[in-house]
């Protein structure tokens, strides 16, 4: 039994799939090097990431299975769950066997798990798009802090880059120490920590106006805190200006 170890990147994972097919060797487990602890019992093979091999696998998934399948795989990868790598592997194998119709097999546990997990990542990305609050930390520069359960940063930046074409912004995932930086032209994700300057008076004014608005728009006679929490889970409240 062999375990494949890779560098934790998406291209790395795709390379693992390539190597496994090329060697006709089904892995016992797939692990990222960050969490890997050497095991003296099994055969551990370190796979170094190869962009070309990754591209080939991604192409094969798109043409032989579907674009949607590739999207699901990427979302599941972003869950960062250790178990997700093997799940993806099994899903790809099944997909190559069944082809385009794989997402009809909703009764299959592998397909069902992939779709459910992918939906969870999608859901959190959507929550972030709703609940991110920017602060103007310098004239014309906007900063937002997030700490999502899953690594959804790459999924949400395009939304804001499209929307705020005329505004510099940084979205900082404090849990993973990743920042998305947009300069009115393009965006990148970096692990260089952003410099946060003091909040301006003007920023404070707008935050206060928003809090006043937030309070005034609620109808006392219809109070329903349970419904509020259902849509806006408490774990995100520290991001919200109106809840400070």
């Amino acid at each position: 039994m062999v375990n494949y170890i890779f560098d934790g990147t998406f291209d790395g994972l795709m390379t693992v799939i390539y190597v496994s097919y090329y060697n006709r060797q089904i892995p016992n487990d797939i692990l990222s090097e960050n969490s890997y602890q050497k095991n003296f019992l099994g055969d551990d093979i370190y796979i170094s990431t190869d962009i070309n091999k990754s591209d080939k696998v991604q192409n094969a998934i798109t043409t032989k299975i579907s674009k949607e399948a590739l999207k699901n795989i990427y979302y599941v990868y972003l869950s960062e769950l250790e178990s997700s790598y093997m799940l993806i592997y099994k899903y790809v194998r099944l997909g190559f066997k069944i082809g385009r119709k794989i997402n009809y097999f909703l009764q299959n546990d592998i397909v069902n798990d992939v779709i459910k997990l992918s939906q969870r990542i999608n859901h959190e990305a959507y929550k972030m798009i709703e609940l991110i609050r920017f602060k103007e930390i310098k004239k014309g520069l906007f900063y937002a802090k997030i700490h999502p359960d899953y690594n959804v940063l790459p999924l949400i930046v395009p939304h804001f880059a499209e929307r705020f074409q005329d505004q510099y912004f940084v979205i900082h995932d404090v849990k993973r120490n990743l920042s998305a930086v947009y300069d009115k032209k393009s965006w990148i994700i970096t692990d260089i920590p952003p410099e946060i300057t003091l909040i301006t008076k003007e920023e404070e004014d707008f935050e206060n106006l928003w809090k006043i608005y937030y309070k005034s728009i609620s109808i006392e006679e219809r109070k329903n805190l349970r419904l509020q929490r259902q849509h806006m889970p408490k774990k995100y409240w520290d991001m919200l200006t109106e809840k400070q």
């Binding site: 709703e130 609620s218 109070k223 329903n224 419904l227 509020q228």
Partner: peptide, 13 residues
Amino acid sequence: GICHSWSDDGRCI
């Protein structure tokens, strides 16, 4: 459509 917050009455903003 996108909601951005929910007030105490549970209605979206």
